[in-house]
Nucleic acid binder design. Sequence first.
DNA 1: ACTTTAATATGTAATGATTTCAATATAACA
DNA 2: TGTTATATTGAAATCATTACATATTAAAGT
Lengths: 134, 134
Amino acid sequence: MESKAKKMKMTPQRAAIIKYLEGNTSHPSAEDIFESVRKKYPMISFTTVYNTLQTLKDRDRVWELNIDDERKRYDPNVKLHHHLICTRCKNIVDIFMDFQLDVPEEEAQGYMISGRHVEFYGLCPKCGKTKNRG
Amino acid sequence: MESKAKKMKMTPQRAAIIKYLEGNTSHPSAEDIFESVRKKYPMISFTTVYNTLQTLKDRDRVWELNIDDERKRYDPNVKLHHHLICTRCKNIVDIFMDFQLDVPEEEAQGYMISGRHVEFYGLCPKCGKTKNRG
DNA sequence: ACTTTAATATGTAATGATTTCAATATAACA
DNA sequence: TGTTATATTGAAATCATTACATATTAAAGT
Ligand SMILES: [Mn+2]
Ligand SMILES: [Mn+2]
Ligand SMILES: [Zn+2]
Ligand SMILES: [Zn+2]
């Protein structure tokens, strides 16, 4: 009992953030979380959002995605899955498929591979239509 | 002849940046490029590095990677391939394998998929040894 | 219930990568 | 050689994220 097992103090702010994330498949940014939680807790600080996200990351309760080139995105679903991102509006959707992604010893160049993630890029249905001036 | 076909004015700075990138498999950051080119052109501006990278991106001569959570990384190899990143030192190496990554219509959720990229995470040989206090 | 205290929340300042901008310089071409 | 669209430069601005100092509070013990 050590790393993941540290007890986590519950606060209204944390509860609100966790509630917002629960089952959320929109892959929100820290700002998205802040703006949403702010409706109920107008006094919440941006720092608290980042602090809480860090705490949740430490406990593997949230996954930080670098898939969006402008900001970090957060995913409460930490089970292995992949993503499809719209290159125009940055919408992200889940892909639950089990790809065969084994890297043979000689290709791994001595790395100890512990994680894998497939990113697909394209245009979402909405952006696919309005090709220009999106 | 239009988008990609725009002619590109050649300058000593651009030549130096392009030369540095040519065949470079280290996936350098803008700063890496700046520091290297600066040795020959001490007066080069950071802005010029970013400008040139933008120009090269526009012409599909360089690939901007979001794989590193701290900074953008650039890859002069624009042919489809994948990457393996060390989660500790952020070293990035290429994986030239042809994975089967077809997403069936019903999983694509209406997206028009145009690109794919597999990211592997792990520890590089160096970091794998020194498990602590890296 | 009251006390204690380590953990958390807050506001503000700092950081660091990237972008914007206005002025100056120059590659390409006639 | 002159013209001009394009590129370079340095400085300032932007924006996401982090660091810090101070005030607050959840939770464990009494
Ligand atoms: Mn997801
Ligand atoms: Mn590469
Ligand atoms: Zn879209
Ligand atoms: Zn490493």
